[in-house]
Design a protein around this nucleic acid. Structure first.
Ligand code: SF4
Ligand code: SF4
Lengths: 130, 130
DNA sequence: ATAAAATAGCACCAAAATAGTGCCATACAA
DNA sequence: TTGTATGGCACTATTTTGGTGCTATTTTAT
Protein backbone atom coordinates (compact mmCIF):
# COMPACT_ATOMS: atom_id res chain seq x y z
CA UNK A 1 0.00 0.00 0.00
CA UNK A 2 2.80 2.42 0.81
CA UNK A 3 4.52 1.73 -2.50
CA UNK A 4 1.26 2.33 -4.31
CA UNK A 5 0.97 5.61 -2.47
CA UNK A 6 4.49 6.62 -3.47
CA UNK A 7 3.71 5.60 -7.04
CA UNK A 8 0.93 8.15 -7.06
CA UNK A 9 3.36 10.93 -6.16
CA UNK A 10 6.23 10.21 -8.54
CA UNK A 11 9.47 11.97 -7.67
CA UNK A 12 8.18 13.59 -4.50
CA UNK A 13 9.54 12.67 -1.09
CA UNK A 14 6.74 11.63 1.24
CA UNK A 15 7.21 11.27 4.98
CA UNK A 16 5.95 8.34 6.98
CA UNK A 17 3.55 10.73 8.69
CA UNK A 18 1.97 11.75 5.38
CA UNK A 19 1.59 8.18 4.29
CA UNK A 20 0.01 6.85 7.44
CA UNK A 21 -2.30 9.85 7.66
CA UNK A 22 -3.72 8.77 4.33
CA UNK A 23 -3.54 5.02 4.67
CA UNK A 24 -4.28 4.63 8.40
CA UNK A 25 -1.45 2.22 9.01
CA UNK A 26 0.47 1.79 12.27
CA UNK A 27 3.15 4.45 11.96
CA UNK A 28 6.09 2.71 13.61
CA UNK A 29 5.45 -0.49 11.71
CA UNK A 30 5.35 1.16 8.33
CA UNK A 31 8.52 3.02 9.28
CA UNK A 32 10.31 -0.30 9.81
CA UNK A 33 9.09 -1.66 6.52
CA UNK A 34 10.21 1.46 4.65
CA UNK A 35 13.60 1.21 6.29
CA UNK A 36 13.89 -2.32 4.94
CA UNK A 37 12.90 -1.18 1.47
CA UNK A 38 15.34 1.70 1.68
CA UNK A 39 18.18 -0.66 2.59
CA UNK A 40 17.20 -2.77 -0.41
CA UNK A 41 17.27 0.41 -2.55
CA UNK A 42 13.66 -0.06 -3.53
CA UNK A 43 13.06 3.50 -2.33
CA UNK A 44 15.24 6.57 -1.85
CA UNK A 45 15.24 8.36 1.48
CA UNK A 46 16.14 11.84 2.69
CA UNK A 47 16.12 12.94 6.28
CA UNK A 48 15.17 16.12 8.02
CA UNK A 49 12.21 18.44 7.48
CA UNK A 50 10.68 17.97 4.05
CA UNK A 51 12.32 14.59 3.79
CA UNK A 52 10.81 11.17 3.44
CA UNK A 53 10.74 8.41 0.85
CA UNK A 54 10.16 8.16 -2.87
CA UNK A 55 10.32 5.26 -5.29
CA UNK A 56 13.84 4.60 -6.51
CA UNK A 57 12.48 3.56 -9.90
CA UNK A 58 9.45 3.91 -12.12
CA UNK A 59 6.54 2.01 -10.57
CA UNK A 60 5.92 0.51 -14.01
CA UNK A 61 9.22 -1.34 -13.79
CA UNK A 62 8.76 -2.57 -10.25
CA UNK A 63 7.23 -6.05 -10.24
CA UNK A 64 5.57 -7.45 -7.14
CA UNK A 65 8.06 -10.32 -7.13
CA UNK A 66 10.81 -7.83 -6.33
CA UNK A 67 8.83 -6.39 -3.44
CA UNK A 68 8.09 -9.82 -2.04
CA UNK A 69 11.71 -10.85 -2.32
CA UNK A 70 12.85 -7.77 -0.46
CA UNK A 71 10.33 -8.10 2.34
CA UNK A 72 9.99 -11.87 2.71
CA UNK A 73 12.88 -13.41 0.85
CA UNK A 74 12.75 -15.65 -2.21
CA UNK A 75 9.28 -16.51 -3.47
CA UNK A 76 8.63 -20.09 -2.44
CA UNK A 77 5.96 -22.38 -1.09
CA UNK A 78 8.35 -25.04 0.24
CA UNK A 79 11.89 -24.72 1.50
CA UNK A 80 13.39 -27.69 -0.30
CA UNK A 81 16.82 -26.13 -0.04
CA UNK A 82 18.90 -25.88 3.12
CA UNK A 83 18.52 -29.57 3.77
CA UNK A 84 14.91 -30.75 4.02
CA UNK A 85 15.10 -34.07 5.82
CA UNK A 86 12.17 -35.45 3.83
CA UNK A 87 13.79 -34.86 0.46
CA UNK A 88 14.97 -38.46 -0.07
CA UNK A 89 11.42 -39.78 0.13
CA UNK A 90 9.62 -36.70 -1.21
CA UNK A 91 7.26 -37.42 -4.10
CA UNK A 92 6.36 -33.87 -5.06
CA UNK A 93 9.49 -31.77 -4.97
CA UNK A 94 9.86 -31.07 -8.68
CA UNK A 95 6.14 -30.58 -9.07
CA UNK A 96 6.05 -28.01 -6.29
CA UNK A 97 9.04 -26.26 -7.80
CA UNK A 98 7.03 -25.85 -11.00
CA UNK A 99 4.06 -24.49 -9.09
CA UNK A 100 6.37 -22.03 -7.37
CA UNK A 101 7.76 -20.94 -10.72
CA UNK A 102 4.25 -20.33 -12.02
CA UNK A 103 3.39 -18.25 -9.00
CA UNK A 104 6.58 -16.25 -9.30
CA UNK A 105 5.64 -15.59 -12.91
CA UNK A 106 2.35 -14.13 -11.75
CA UNK A 107 4.21 -11.80 -9.42
CA UNK A 108 6.74 -10.95 -12.12
CA UNK A 109 3.95 -9.90 -14.42
CA UNK A 110 2.25 -7.39 -12.16
CA UNK A 111 3.90 -4.13 -11.25
CA UNK A 112 3.20 -1.75 -8.40
CA UNK A 113 1.85 0.70 -10.97
CA UNK A 114 -0.64 -1.89 -12.22
CA UNK A 115 -1.56 -2.86 -8.70
CA UNK A 116 -2.69 0.70 -8.12
CA UNK A 117 -4.24 1.26 -11.55
CA UNK A 118 -6.27 -1.92 -11.40
CA UNK A 119 -7.79 -0.97 -8.08
CA UNK A 120 -11.10 0.79 -8.54
CA UNK A 121 -12.12 1.64 -5.01
CA UNK A 122 -12.95 5.28 -4.19
CA UNK A 123 -9.68 5.75 -2.32
CA UNK A 124 -7.59 4.50 -5.24
CA UNK A 125 -9.49 6.52 -7.84
CA UNK A 126 -9.18 9.64 -5.70
CA UNK A 127 -5.43 9.36 -5.34
CA UNK A 128 -5.00 8.71 -9.05
CA UNK A 129 -7.04 11.74 -10.06
CA UNK A 130 -4.66 14.03 -8.11
CA UNK B 1 2.81 -35.98 -0.34
CA UNK B 2 0.29 -38.41 1.10
CA UNK B 3 -2.15 -37.70 -1.73
CA UNK B 4 0.61 -38.29 -4.26
CA UNK B 5 1.32 -41.58 -2.53
CA UNK B 6 -2.34 -42.59 -2.69
CA UNK B 7 -2.41 -41.55 -6.35
CA UNK B 8 0.28 -44.12 -7.02
CA UNK B 9 -1.89 -46.90 -5.58
CA UNK B 10 -5.23 -46.20 -7.24
CA UNK B 11 -8.18 -47.95 -5.65
CA UNK B 12 -6.18 -49.56 -2.85
CA UNK B 13 -6.72 -48.68 0.79
CA UNK B 14 -3.44 -47.64 2.40
CA UNK B 15 -3.06 -47.28 6.16
CA UNK B 16 -1.35 -44.35 7.82
CA UNK B 17 1.38 -46.75 8.90
CA UNK B 18 2.16 -47.77 5.32
CA UNK B 19 2.27 -44.16 4.17
CA UNK B 20 4.55 -42.85 6.89
CA UNK B 21 6.85 -45.85 6.54
CA UNK B 22 7.46 -44.76 2.99
CA UNK B 23 7.35 -41.00 3.36
CA UNK B 24 8.94 -40.65 6.80
CA UNK B 25 6.32 -38.25 8.07
CA UNK B 26 5.22 -37.82 11.70
CA UNK B 27 2.53 -40.47 12.00
CA UNK B 28 0.07 -38.74 14.28
CA UNK B 29 0.27 -35.53 12.30
CA UNK B 30 -0.44 -37.18 8.98
CA UNK B 31 -3.30 -39.02 10.64
CA UNK B 32 -4.92 -35.73 11.59
CA UNK B 33 -4.50 -34.35 8.09
CA UNK B 34 -6.03 -37.45 6.54
CA UNK B 35 -8.96 -37.21 8.91
CA UNK B 36 -9.56 -33.69 7.69
CA UNK B 37 -9.40 -34.82 4.09
CA UNK B 38 -11.72 -37.70 4.85
CA UNK B 39 -14.27 -35.34 6.39
CA UNK B 40 -14.01 -33.23 3.25
CA UNK B 41 -14.58 -36.38 1.16
CA UNK B 42 -11.29 -35.92 -0.62
CA UNK B 43 -10.44 -39.46 0.40
CA UNK B 44 -12.44 -42.56 1.36
CA UNK B 45 -11.67 -44.35 4.62
CA UNK B 46 -12.27 -47.82 5.99
CA UNK B 47 -11.41 -48.97 9.50
CA UNK B 48 -10.05 -52.12 10.94
CA UNK B 49 -7.24 -54.38 9.77
CA UNK B 50 -6.62 -53.96 6.05
CA UNK B 51 -8.29 -50.57 6.19
CA UNK B 52 -6.90 -47.15 5.47
CA UNK B 53 -7.43 -44.39 2.96
CA UNK B 54 -7.74 -44.11 -0.80
CA UNK B 55 -8.45 -41.22 -3.12
CA UNK B 56 -12.15 -40.57 -3.49
CA UNK B 57 -11.62 -39.53 -7.09
CA UNK B 58 -9.19 -39.85 -9.96
CA UNK B 59 -6.01 -37.97 -9.13
CA UNK B 60 -6.19 -36.43 -12.60
CA UNK B 61 -9.36 -34.61 -11.64
CA UNK B 62 -8.10 -33.38 -8.29
CA UNK B 63 -6.61 -29.89 -8.63
CA UNK B 64 -4.27 -28.52 -6.00
CA UNK B 65 -6.68 -25.64 -5.40
CA UNK B 66 -9.17 -28.13 -3.99
CA UNK B 67 -6.58 -29.58 -1.65
CA UNK B 68 -5.52 -26.15 -0.44
CA UNK B 69 -9.11 -25.13 0.13
CA UNK B 70 -9.81 -28.21 2.19
CA UNK B 71 -6.71 -27.88 4.34
CA UNK B 72 -6.28 -24.13 4.65
CA UNK B 73 -9.52 -22.55 3.51
CA UNK B 74 -10.12 -20.32 0.48
CA UNK B 75 -7.03 -19.46 -1.55
CA UNK B 76 -6.16 -15.89 -0.68
CA UNK B 77 -3.26 -13.59 0.02
CA UNK B 78 -5.26 -10.94 1.86
CA UNK B 79 -8.41 -11.26 3.91
CA UNK B 80 -10.29 -8.29 2.52
CA UNK B 81 -13.57 -9.84 3.57
CA UNK B 82 -14.83 -10.12 7.15
CA UNK B 83 -14.27 -6.42 7.70
CA UNK B 84 -10.74 -5.26 7.09
CA UNK B 85 -10.49 -1.93 8.88
CA UNK B 86 -8.11 -0.55 6.24
CA UNK B 87 -10.47 -1.13 3.35
CA UNK B 88 -11.75 2.46 3.11
CA UNK B 89 -8.25 3.80 2.50
CA UNK B 90 -6.80 0.73 0.74
CA UNK B 91 -5.20 1.46 -2.62
CA UNK B 92 -4.54 -2.09 -3.75
CA UNK B 93 -7.58 -4.21 -2.93
CA UNK B 94 -8.79 -4.87 -6.46
CA UNK B 95 -5.26 -5.38 -7.70
CA UNK B 96 -4.53 -7.95 -5.02
CA UNK B 97 -7.80 -9.67 -5.80
CA UNK B 98 -6.58 -10.10 -9.36
CA UNK B 99 -3.25 -11.46 -8.21
CA UNK B 100 -5.09 -13.91 -6.00
CA UNK B 101 -7.22 -15.00 -8.95
CA UNK B 102 -4.11 -15.63 -11.04
CA UNK B 103 -2.57 -17.70 -8.28
CA UNK B 104 -5.74 -19.70 -7.86
CA UNK B 105 -5.68 -20.34 -11.58
CA UNK B 106 -2.20 -21.80 -11.21
CA UNK B 107 -3.49 -24.14 -8.52
CA UNK B 108 -6.57 -24.98 -10.55
CA UNK B 109 -4.39 -26.02 -13.44
CA UNK B 110 -2.22 -28.53 -11.66
CA UNK B 111 -3.60 -31.80 -10.39
CA UNK B 112 -2.26 -34.20 -7.78
CA UNK B 113 -1.52 -36.63 -10.60
CA UNK B 114 0.60 -34.05 -12.39
CA UNK B 115 2.32 -33.08 -9.18
CA UNK B 116 3.55 -36.64 -8.89
CA UNK B 117 4.26 -37.18 -12.59
CA UNK B 118 6.26 -33.99 -12.90
CA UNK B 119 8.52 -34.96 -10.04
CA UNK B 120 11.63 -36.72 -11.26
CA UNK B 121 13.43 -37.59 -8.04
CA UNK B 122 14.44 -41.21 -7.44
CA UNK B 123 11.69 -41.73 -4.88
CA UNK B 124 9.00 -40.46 -7.23
CA UNK B 125 10.23 -42.47 -10.19
CA UNK B 126 10.44 -45.57 -8.05
CA UNK B 127 6.87 -45.32 -6.83
CA UNK B 128 5.60 -44.65 -10.33
CA UNK B 129 7.31 -47.68 -11.79
CA UNK B 130 5.46 -49.97 -9.33
C1' DA C 1 -16.11 -63.69 22.57
C1' DT C 2 -11.89 -61.49 22.25
C1' DA C 3 -7.88 -59.30 20.76
C1' DA C 4 -5.68 -56.47 17.57
C1' DA C 5 -5.67 -53.09 13.83
C1' DA C 6 -7.19 -49.40 12.16
C1' DT C 7 -9.83 -44.63 11.71
C1' DA C 8 -12.81 -40.61 14.35
C1' DG C 9 -12.95 -36.76 17.28
C1' DC C 10 -11.29 -33.13 19.69
C1' DA C 11 -8.77 -30.71 23.08
C1' DC C 12 -4.41 -29.43 24.10
C1' DC C 13 0.65 -28.05 24.05
C1' DA C 14 4.96 -26.36 21.69
C1' DA C 15 7.41 -24.04 18.27
C1' DA C 16 7.81 -20.75 14.77
C1' DA C 17 6.48 -16.78 12.24
C1' DT C 18 4.50 -12.45 12.17
C1' DA C 19 2.92 -7.98 13.98
C1' DG C 20 4.14 -4.22 16.59
C1' DT C 21 7.19 -1.22 20.23
C1' DG C 22 11.16 1.06 22.70
C1' DC C 23 15.01 3.53 22.51
C1' DC C 24 18.55 6.06 20.88
C1' DA C 25 21.54 7.65 17.08
C1' DT C 26 22.11 10.44 12.99
C1' DA C 27 21.09 13.85 9.45
C1' DC C 28 19.10 17.86 7.63
C1' DA C 29 16.71 22.43 7.35
C1' DA C 30 15.08 26.70 9.11
C1' DT D 1 20.02 25.43 18.17
C1' DT D 2 15.81 23.30 17.69
C1' DG D 3 12.53 20.49 15.58
C1' DT D 4 11.64 17.11 12.03
C1' DA D 5 12.76 13.29 9.89
C1' DT D 6 15.10 8.60 8.82
C1' DG D 7 18.64 4.57 10.59
C1' DG D 8 19.48 0.65 13.44
C1' DC D 9 18.41 -2.92 16.24
C1' DA D 10 16.73 -5.33 20.09
C1' DC D 11 12.73 -6.49 22.17
C1' DT D 12 7.71 -7.93 23.29
C1' DA D 13 3.20 -9.59 21.98
C1' DT D 14 0.15 -12.03 19.08
C1' DT D 15 -1.10 -15.33 15.75
C1' DT D 16 -0.36 -19.31 13.14
C1' DT D 17 1.42 -23.66 12.50
C1' DG D 18 3.31 -28.11 13.86
C1' DG D 19 2.69 -31.76 16.76
C1' DT D 20 0.71 -34.72 20.89
C1' DG D 21 -2.67 -37.03 24.38
C1' DC D 22 -6.43 -39.44 25.07
C1' DT D 23 -10.48 -41.96 24.27
C1' DA D 24 -14.11 -43.88 21.33
C1' DT D 25 -15.65 -46.55 17.41
C1' DT D 26 -15.38 -49.79 13.63
C1' DT D 27 -13.61 -53.93 11.41
C1' DT D 28 -11.09 -58.33 10.76
C1' DA D 29 -9.09 -62.56 12.39
C1' DT D 30 -8.58 -66.03 15.71
S1 SF4 E 1 8.66 -30.45 -1.27
FE1 SF4 E 1 9.59 -32.33 -0.62
S2 SF4 E 1 11.68 -31.69 -0.52
FE2 SF4 E 1 10.69 -29.75 -0.82
S3 SF4 E 1 10.37 -29.17 1.27
FE3 SF4 E 1 8.47 -30.23 0.90
S4 SF4 E 1 9.11 -32.23 1.50
FE4 SF4 E 1 11.07 -31.24 1.53
S1 SF4 F 1 -5.91 -5.56 0.51
FE1 SF4 F 1 -6.64 -3.69 1.36
S2 SF4 F 1 -8.67 -4.36 1.93
FE2 SF4 F 1 -7.74 -6.27 1.39
S3 SF4 F 1 -6.98 -6.85 3.36
FE3 SF4 F 1 -5.21 -5.80 2.57
S4 SF4 F 1 -5.70 -3.79 3.32
FE4 SF4 F 1 -7.59 -4.80 3.77
Amino acid sequence: MALAFLASRPGAFCSVREIVDDLKLPKRLLAEVLKDMSRATLVDATRGPGGGYRLAMDAKTLPLSRVVEVLEGPVSIADCGDGCSLQPSCLIQTGLTQVTASIRKVLDNMTVAELLEQTDTPAAKAILSV
